[in-house]
Structure formats: C-alpha cells, structure tokens
Design a protein around this nucleic acid. Sequence first.
DNA 1: ATCCTTATTGCAAGTTTTTGCAATTGTATC
DNA 2: GATACAATTGCAAAAACTTGCAATAAGGAT
Lengths: 139, 139
Amino acid sequence: MSCVNEFAPQLRARGFRATPQRMVILHVLRHAGGHLTPSQVFEQARIDLPGLTEPTIYRTLEFLATSGFVLAAHVGNGKMVYELAEAQHHHLICRHCGASTEIEHAPLETLYHQLEVTTGYRLDSSHVTLFGLCPACQS
Amino acid sequence: MSCVNEFAPQLRARGFRATPQRMVILHVLRHAGGHLTPSQVFEQARIDLPGLTEPTIYRTLEFLATSGFVLAAHVGNGKMVYELAEAQHHHLICRHCGASTEIEHAPLETLYHQLEVTTGYRLDSSHVTLFGLCPACQS
DNA sequence: ATCCTTATTGCAAGTTTTTGCAATTGTATC
DNA sequence: GATACAATTGCAAAAACTTGCAATAAGGAT
Ligand SMILES: [Mn+2]
Ligand SMILES: [Mn+2]
Ligand SMILES: [Zn+2]
Ligand SMILES: [Zn+2]
C-alpha cells in the first residue's frame, strides 16, 4: 500500500479525506495494468478491505474520476471502465472484434484548439474513445 | 405513423423485420427533438403499443444503433441516449453545468484521416462526445 | 389464403447500478 | 489526547439493465 501514499496528501490538500476505501481502490487501480470495471475493482479491493460495499465502489470511482485521480471510459461493451490517470491518451476500438489501440493526445491538439476557438468551451483533453474497423475486420 | 414508412422497406431489404415494436420506437425517436434515454422511449412507446416491454426497448435500441438507423451516445450523466440517425454531428458538453453544443463533423475530418493513416483502422465517424467547461463555467 | 421457417418478442429471473438516510470516522482545532 | 464538525460510508431498497428460453408472428414460398 505504500505505493499509493502520494495520494493521501493530494486528497487532503483539496479538502477530501484519505479514507481506507479510497486508498485500497487506488491501490487496486495502480496494480491493474489497464482498464477495470467496477466489479473487477470490487473483487480485488474487498480482499484488502473486507467490509467494502458496492455502492462505495461506484461512488468512489466516480469521485476519483471527477476529481481527476482516475480516468473513466466507455469501451463499447456497455460497461464503464476506470484506470489511474497517468499518461494522457485516448482509445481507438474495433466495433467488430473489439481490438483496441491507444492514441496519443498530440494528434488531437489541433482539433481541440480549433473547437475551443469556435465554441468558447475549454476542452479537457481526457480519454476519448473512437470507434471503427481494425485492419483485419475491413473485408 | 406514416412518417416512419420509409424504414420498413429499408429493414426488409437488409433481412430484418419491420415489426410494430420497431416502427413505434422509430416513430417516438422521430418526434422527439433530441436525445432520449431508454426509459423515455419506453414511456412514450408503450402509449402507442401497450404490450411493449423494457427488454424489447433495450434490445431494439441496440439493434437500431448497430444497424445504423439510430445514433447512441453517452452524455455524461451515466445514461445512454438515442436519437434518429439523420445529420452527422458530435457533441461538446460542459462537465460543470451540463450545457451542450453540437459540433459539425467537418472539423474532425482531418483528425480522422490522419488516424486512419497511422493506425490502419477505418474510423466510422459517428456521434462523438467531448467534454470541457462552457464559457460561463470557466471562472 | 395457408404453411414454414426463423427472427423477434414477452416473460421471469438475475445482475448491475443508483439513491436516501442514519451511523461512522477522518481531520482540523483546541 | 480529547472534541466537534462534516465528509464519507454501509445498509436497505429501488431502479435500470441483461439474459435464457419458450411462445409469437413477419415475410417468403407454395
Ligand atoms: Mn485508457
Ligand atoms: Mn446527438
Ligand atoms: Zn477488428
Ligand atoms: Zn457550464
């Protein structure tokens, strides 16, 4: 659990609490190499913290997402998935076979800037999911 | 209901059936000026077709979406929403107040093309949702 | 008009996600 | 270290969504 110590002061500095539930969930996300669904987070997290309940999983993941500690995404299977917010990236997913490719943020910069100018919105550049057909599924 | 007659032959031509359930749901979507959640579709549609059930709503909306008659989107409140697939467009939504602005597809063309070249995927350009802060919420 | 095939629906049950509220527990202050 | 306040949690119930399967009915063929 020492690998999530950094988060406690970050939470407190913003007026939030560093609860065991939050620490365990962050810990699970840190050691999962990729996107996890709420049930997957629940399965893992309850091992370290037996009393933990599902409503807390859902509420905590949403809290961590809106406060910027984790990224959320819809990846086409209907379920929301979460991961620790580390490197900036996006996803490109095959509608047919589900194959998925990571996209850097760089190629979206121009578009984001252009949209900010024309709409007046300030875009936050996080974790977009685009769909299409992968090379193998185009026949 | 004559306003959804066009869909019956389109369905049959592709080997699907033009069922009353599908016609009514398309009719509801045609007269709703915007995105509807499955429950909203259900409320409306059951008026015209009393026997209609929720599983049929969910399955039909998903069917219509994957076969291209309707567009689906996640608009930030956790619920999926649907609308008739007419003009090509995308959405820009304020994370803070929920305000939303439509985006033309044109500004995304360059990006899509660039991503197709670098990834080999063929992007289908439908109904992306981007998030940010609207002009009013940027203080 | 009737028959046949099979896509689609309804039903019943299961799973997932949300919500309201009272009890708990972090953390700031003394 | 003890106290007080408010954020956060667990609990119980509700709502939303999914699934398997048997019954129905759309549409093509005769
Ligand atoms: Mn990701
Ligand atoms: Mn739309
Ligand atoms: Zn594929
Ligand atoms: Zn706003």
